[in-house]
């Protein structure tokens, strides 16, 4: 049978930053083809197809964040595969190769992590599960 894709609505304008992304205007309806864990979702809108940030979208039906996993306060060990310098107060800066614990995997690709006493948001695209080869 036909594949029914989930429809989401854009909550804010988004201007693409590369040719594989598409622009969004508030209220645009998009169909989601693939949800990447790093917070970029591949969608189609009219004749356009490309990646958009998941955080700019809300589901048309059903409760928001229905698929969001619960926080795991025990933490899951990950290693940074790229350094990142915090740009906002609730983010955390890390160098390459640091081991941290992931507490909450959010769909928008910004995960809550713990490093020692410090917690904050970190881009999941720069993390890899500890013990995994690249």
């Amino acid at each position: 049978g036909p594949i029914i894709l989930d429809t989401y609505r854009a909550m804010a304008d988004f201007t693409k930053t590369s040719k594989h992304e598409i622009n969004l205007r508030v209220g645009d309806l998009v169909e989601i083809v693939e949800k990447s864990q790093n917070g970029w979702w591949f969608c189609q809108c009219d004749s356009h197809r490309g990646w958009v940030p998941a955080s700019y979208l809300e589901p048309l039906d059903g409760p928001e964040e229905a698929e969001e996993a619960e926080p795991n306060y025990a933490g899951e060990h990950h290693v940074t595969v790229k350094a990142y310098k915090a740009e906002q107060g609730d983010e955390i800066s890390l160098e390459l190769g640091e081991t941290i614990e992931v507490i909450h995997k959010l769909l928008d690709g910004w995960w809550v992590i713990r490093k020692g006493e410090e917690t904050g948001y970190f881009p999941s695209t720069f993390l890899q599960k500890a013990g995994k080869k690249e």
Partner: peptide, 22 residues
């Protein structure tokens, strides 16, 4: 075909979205 997702972090949720989620 679907290309690999961008490797740069997606933007943080815009302010108007964060307000809505609170």
């Amino acid at each position: 075909s679907i290309k690999n997702p961008p490797q740069n972090p997606p933007p943080r949720p815009p302010v108007e979205v964060r307000r809505k989620r609170v």
